[in-house]
Write a protein that binds this DNA or RNA. Structure first.
Lengths: 114, 114
DNA sequence: GCCGTATACATCGACTGTCGATGTATGAGG
DNA sequence: CCTCATACATCGACAGTCGATGTATACGGC
């Protein structure tokens, strides 16, 4: 049993969603598709992860939702970033960078530390 | 409540441990200290996460353990990578890179996708 | 008019893994 | 001796993902 990037999604989903919404309001389905498309199918956000995440973000006041009609004339719940959500995005982006750097340091080390 | 890099540790711990062991055999305590030191305190591997992870890796045949005496003359269980563990390390490193790239693509995108 | 497909929302239970707290033991150094 | 750092380990609470499943509706083709 391999360990696909899928398993690494934990803790990053919120960041991904927040970032996606920073381009403008969107509904859940579109968010999932954009992420999938942008990453060339590498990241696949399942709906069973997406909707709980969206509700979580709303509960924390980082996004707010509103029922609207999508371009193809169907009802859809559009999510958009709040001011606090924008702050959160900045914070999580910084954390992410710091974390990736830290892991990178370990991965790039070739010699045993003192 | 912020989301410290701590929360991102999920799914990366195995990789970190495997990589640390690729420098040579080590016991749990030392692994945790090395990672902490290398990352400048950014990553803190708690013992409650470390030991279960170590047992998990052993169960999967990626590391094997042996009781020995540490340099300071105390009994300690030394872990070392198996051949399959080395393969696993390569695989997980590749997954990690792919994953970071994918997230990076999303984070670097400034315009709304089509 | 009917049917299949894509869109869109949502929930559920199983499962995995982390985290903080806690417990034990022992060697080294004062 | 007595404390501190080393070293192992387990426990329960908790969070979050995942696949499966369910609902409903717009649209196009026939």
């Amino acid at each position: 049993m391999v360990r696909p990037p899928q398993d690494l999604l934990q803790g990053t989903l919120d960041l991904l969603i927040l970032k996606t919404l920073s381009w403008g309001p969107a509904h859940g389905y579109a968010i999932a598709r954009w992420i999938q498309q942008l990453t060339g199918q590498v990241l696949d956000v399942g709906e069973g992860s997406l909707y709980p995440a969206l509700h979580r973000l709303e509960e924390r006041g980082w996004v707010k939702s509103e029922w609207q009609l999508s371009p193809n004339n169907r009802r859809a719940k559009f999510y958009q970033l709040t001011t606090r959500g924008r702050q959160q995005l900045r914070a999580e982006t910084a954390s992410w960078t710091e974390f990736v750097d830290a892991v990178g340091k370990v991965l790039r080390t070739t010699t045993q530390p003192a």
